[in-house]
């Protein structure tokens, strides 16, 4: 604690100093945390930029290559496919939890017996350890012994290949993602519902509006800002999804569920192409920021019109 060393400095009766001085006092509280943030967060960012313009394999000499890594990346078929997988996965893993989460929030907004307990059970998935979640789903996806195919069978639907065929692997992984992250969307939207005023509903009831009309024309506009926040958070998280995909499929079968993050992991820690992987990090980061900004922009535009 840096600040602790300061003896009581302001003698009684001394001028308290300007507002700026007072604010400056508080900077000292921040320095230790700032030092750590600089070391483990900012330094890695800068070092990544530096590495990304070098040809760098672990164990061999590095060589400055300018933008070669980026150019190579643009031409890399496997990387391009991983971008496609990521966008497809993200689109579904944002949209579906948003829909289900909003519906669940409408349910939990009403008062009913055991609501607290049931809501706690409902949010358990989002806190559960992703690796543990992935293991259980791996067992549930099992083509012969898995409980999912058994349940499908009960409903008279033929067994599904889930994560074991290239055509269905991503949508099956989205299913895990929905299970895992719908609670987060629910909580954010629930906060929006709690903050919504009640007057519009009262007058709507007097005007004889139907329940759907009330949802469409009163509730939805009121909670829209919260849905957008949830969408931004969900987009960032979905793009970054690693644990569940890596544990369940490792990007397979073949490379059919290889997202940017998995591609990045393999480049860095299976092939040890440090420079190349760093270029992927930079591109990936730009993609995350761009998509988040796009969503925020859409929200602003929705406000203006």
């Amino acid at each position: 604690m840096v600040a602790q060393a300061r003896a009581p400095s302001a003698a009684p009766g001394a001028p308290a100093g300007t507002a700026i001085d007072r604010r400056r006092q508080y900077y000292r509280f921040i320095y230790p945390a700032l030092a750590i943030i600089l070391a483990v967060i900012v330094f890695p960012w800068l070092f990544t930029l530096y590495m990304s313009v070098h040809e760098w394999k672990v164990g061999s000499a590095r060589e400055f290559v300018g933008f070669d890594n980026y150019l190579k990346l643009a031409a890399d078929q496997r990387f391009r496919e991983s971008v496609g997988h990521t966008l497809y996965f993200t689109f579904l893993a944002v949209l579906l939890p948003l829909g289900f989460g909003t519906l669940a929030a409408l349910v939990f907004h009403r008062d009913f017996p055991l609501r607290g307990l049931l809501r706690t059970i409902f949010i358990l998935p989002m806190m559960a350890t992703p690796v543990a979640v992935a293991l259980v789903w791996t067992m549930m996806f099992h083509p012969q012994l898995g409980v999912l195919n058994y349940l499908l069978g009960l409903a008279g639907i033929p067994p599904h290949t889930w994560v074991y065929s290239p055509g269905t692997v991503i949508s099956s992984l989205v299913l895990v993602e929905i299970w895992h992250w719908t609670p987060l969307v629910m909580l954010i939207v629930l906060g929006g519902l709690a903050a919504a005023p009640t007057e519009p509903y009262e007058s709507a009831v007097i005007d004889g509006a139907s329940r759907f009309q009330m949802f469409r024309y009163i509730t939805l506009p009121l909670i829209m800002p919260f849905i957008v926040v949830a969408a931004v958070i969900r987009t960032i998280d979905a793009l970054k999804t690693f644990d569940t995909i890596y544990v369940i499929t490792q990007g397979g079968p073949g490379t059919s569920s290889e997202t940017i993050n998995i591609f990045l992991y393999l480049q860095a820690f299976a092939f040890y192409n440090i420079g190349y992987a760093s270029a992927v990090v930079v591109v990936f980061f730009v993609l995350v920021v761009m998509l988040s900004l796009l969503l925020l922009y859409l929200r602003q535009r929705a406000k203006w019109t």
Binding site: P44, W45, F47, T48, L264, A268, S278, V281, F285, S292
Partner: peptide
């Protein structure tokens, strides 16, 4: 500073891992 920590949240974990690993 608050924004800095927010950006940290947006960054994939692997981007910290590679430099710190080295």
């Amino acid at each position: 500073l608050a924004v800095l920590t927010l950006i940290a949240r947006m960054t994939p974990g692997l981007s910290f891992l590679i430099p710190l690993y080295i």
